[in-house]
């Protein structure tokens, strides 16, 4: 006999609730992953990784894009495209990015600057 409070509910309700809680938990985990600071910067031109830099070491790198030159600067654990040969400079206006999963994109140059983290460090940060 079911508890009077649960009267009228179905097994479908319980399955649905479990699935929704799982989705909520997943979105929390995804959120935490987004919060983790990045470790490396990968620059892709036309889908191919052409350059990898550490986020921890300051650097200034010139990248040949599909249309012209871009300069990617890394400083204080953040990365940004500081100048680019493109009409709208969306990539430059994106500004400084530091978290794992962040991207800076320059569409005319077919350039994607990705910031990646080390997954094991992210997990350590959660349990710690």
């Amino acid at each position: 006999m079911t508890h009077p409070l649960l009267r009228g509910m179905t097994a479908g309700d319980a399955v649905l609730l479990a699935l929704l809680l799982l989705a909520a938990g997943g979105s929390v985990a995804a959120g935490l992953w987004r919060m983790t600071p990045g470790d490396i910067v990968v620059v892709e031109v036309q889908g191919r990784a052409v350059q990898t830099m550490s986020l921890l070491q300051p650097s200034r790198t010139s990248i040949r894009g599909a249309r012209g030159e871009l300069i990617v600067e890394v400083r204080e654990g953040r990365a940004a495209v500081i100048s680019a040969d493109c009409p709208n400079h969306v990539c430059v206006r994106t500004g400084w990015r530091s978290r794992a999963g962040d991207v800076v994109v320059c569409v005319p140059n077919r350039v994607i600057v990705r910031i990646l983290g080390k997954p094991e460090e992210g997990i350590r940060a959660i349990t710690g």
């Binding site: 009228g8 509910m9 179905t10 479908g12 309700d13 649905l16 609730l17 929704l20």
Partner: peptide
């Protein structure tokens, strides 16, 4: 489509999310 699969609770959960 759910028929008797969900009660008002299941329907409300779907609506709220």
């Amino acid at each position: 489509l759910g028929g008797r699969l969900f009660s008002a609770v299941g329907i409300s959960l779907v609506g709220a999310t």
